[in-house]
Each structure stands twice: as C-alpha cells, then as structure tokens.
C-alpha cells in the first residue's frame, strides 16, 4: 500500500526534487548553450547563459494575465506535470538508488505513454483559449506525433526483443561494460530509426511546423503568457532533457554519473541541432509522409535485425 512507508516516499520525493532541479537547470543551460553554438555558426555572440533563466523569471514577474477558462488555466499545469512525471519514471543515474526516482512504478512502456499526458493537457488548455492558431498547431503537432511514433515504436520493440525486458534499469544494465555494449553499437538499426524519430520529437527544423513561429504565431502556446508561459518554458527545458535522458538510457548505455549524463545528452541533442541548422522546414503532410517512409522502413528492419540477433 501507499502509506505503509511514508518515510520512504518522502525521501524518494526529496531525492526526486533534487533530480528535478538538476535536470531542469541542466536543460535550461543546455538550451542556452545550443543557442550560443548556433550563434557562433552564424557569427554572433548569442544570448548570455543566464538568458533562459531570466526569461522565465521575467514571465513570472509579469503583473497582468488573462484567463480563458479553467482548462486554459490548468493546461500549463498538465504540461509540466507531464514533464516532471516522465522524468519521475526514468531512472536517471544507473546504479544510484538516489537518482532512480520512481522507476519502480512502471517500465519503459509507462514512460512512453506518460509522455502523452502533458501533450494532451496542454492541447486542452490551448484549445480552450479559442484561438484558431492554437488548434491548428495542435492538429499538426498531434499528426506529426503519430508519424514519428511509428519508427520510435518499432525501435523500442526492437530493443525490447534484444534485451527481453521493458525495465529501463535492466536495459541500461545490459549496456554496461564498455561502449561496445551500447545499443547504438549492438543494435544500430534501431538506434538509427529512433534517432530519426527524435528529430520529430524535439521539434526542431525540419519538423517544427507545428510551432511555426511565423505562419501561426508559435502554434499551441499562442495565448499563453506570464506565469503560464514560464511554466511552459520550464517544461520545455525539462521535458527536452528528459527525452534525451530516455534516449541515452535506451541507446547510449545510460550514465553512471551526472557528468557522463550531461555529455551524452548534449551530444544526442547536437544531432537534432545539426540537422535542424542544416535543413529547411517540412510541411506537415510532408513530415508525416517522411516518417512513414524511410524511418519506418529502418524501424521494420530493426525488428528483423533484433530477431536475427536473438537467434544468433
């Protein structure tokens, strides 16, 4: 039962708060870092490292706000709860009970499905704002989501076949003992499919049409401002980092310390950034078709590959 070990719960919650803090700060920081790298590419200096934090603070310090209704108000709450919850179900540092969070509640499947929690809540909040651009943004975002889920799901199935488990801890454990044991080496096909899906998941160019800052002013969050927006910004950093941690756990051997985690996730992130800097944007139907073609094919091959691994 839940209340049997209140103390255990409290200590877990405490440790998780620490994890949350580190990951959020890291997420915001890495966001600034990426911005600065992009600026460097463009020959600029770019934002200060503190900029993401200041932006959030500034929005917290806004003095007026409007509300379109209860779901509008709760939308950002759902969104960030989705981010925090997803992190809560992922063991962050391998072999460290402190940072394994609430990963005993559920496995990889839980993490994947819980990712939708925030999206759904946010979509409802944005929907209640009544702004057509929000609705269009959500419609596009959801459609794109169904598309990149396909290669991702195939890749996940592939590694579940490979490791014969859904437990994230066990998947990471199976990759210990050197880089040659990482999924990216042992099951590179699945990794490839998943990395292509990651491009869609992170929402960078060429798959950023649902945010479309020019055509439909920033899509779903069009109407969000002030404190709502700061919650959303926090979540963007947190959720982004969480997804990277998930990918790191699944494909890149996990991390045994915070340093390893930061380096690995940063490098994974860079993949999406490099692609994003180099490519123009897809229309949403093009994006959907793209995911249903090559990445899905690679995903299909990854399952076949995993079955061959299994029989070999």
């Amino acid at each position: 039962m839940i209340f049997d070990s209140m103390n255990e719960w409290l200590s877990k919650a405490g440790y998780f708060s620490l994890t949350l803090l580190i990951v959020t700060i890291y997420g915001l920081f890495v966001g600034a870092l990426i911005e600065r790298i992009i600026a460097k590419v463009q020959g600029r200096i770019g934002i200060p490292y503190s900029q993401p934090f200041i932006n959030i603070l500034k929005n917290f310090f806004k003095r007026t706000a409007i509300s379109h209704g209860i779901m509008f108000y709760l939308g950002p709450v759902f969104r960030i709860a989705g981010g925090i919850g997803t992190l809560a179900f992922i063991p962050v540092i391998y072999g460290n009970e402190m940072f394994s969070n609430f990963s005993t509640a559920g496995d990889l499947f839980l993490v994947i499905y819980f990712m939708f929690f925030g999206q759904l809540g946010m979509a409802l909040g944005a929907g209640e704002s009544g702004h057509p651009y929000s609705a269009i943004g959500i419609a596009r975002g959801l459609s794109q989501m169904t598309a990149y889920e396909v290669p991702f799901a195939l890749a996940v199935i592939s590694i579940v076949i490979q490791y014969d488990t859904l437990s994230l801890t066990e998947i990471v454990a199976a990759q210990q003992g050197g880089w040659q044991n990482w999924t990216v080496i042992t099951n590179w096909v699945a990794t490839l499919a998943a990395m292509l899906a990651l491009l869609g998941m992170t929402g960078y160019s060429p798959f950023d049409i649902f945010l479309a800052p020019q055509e439909i002013p920033i899509g779903p969050p069009t109407e969000f401002h002030s404190a709502y927006l700061s919650l959303l910004q926090t979540n963007r950093a947190l959720f982004g980092a969480t997804k990277l941690i998930l990918f790191m756990n699944l494909f890149f051997g996990g991390a045994t310390g915070w340093g390893e985690l930061m380096i690995k996730t940063f490098l994974i992130y860079m993949v999406a950034i490099i692609v994003g800097v180099a490519f123009p944007r897809f229309r949403v139907d093009q994006a959907i078709r793209f995911f249903f073609k090559i990445p899905t094919l690679i995903g299909v091959m990854s399952i076949i590959y995993a079955q061959m691994l299994l029989t070999a």
């Binding site: 911005e35 600026a39 463009q42 020959g43 600029r44 200096i45 770019g46 934002i47 200060p48 900029q51 200041i54 932006n55 500034k58 929005n59 800052p213 020019q214 002013p217 920033i218 069009t222 109407e223 969000f224 401002h225 927006l229």
Partner: peptide, 21 residues
C-alpha cells in the same frame, strides 16, 4: 544579424503580443 546581435542584450522577437513586452 551577426553585426548587431541584439540577442546579447536579451532581446528576442516574439510573434504574439501576449508574450511580448
């Protein structure tokens, strides 16, 4: 642009008035 780079000062463009200051 690279020459003026107002990003340095915390300046950013925002497409929606709700979020602009």
């Amino acid at each position: 642009t690279a020459r003026f780079d107002a990003n340095r000062f915390g300046v950013a463009g925002r497409p929606t008035p709700r979020q602009s200051s």
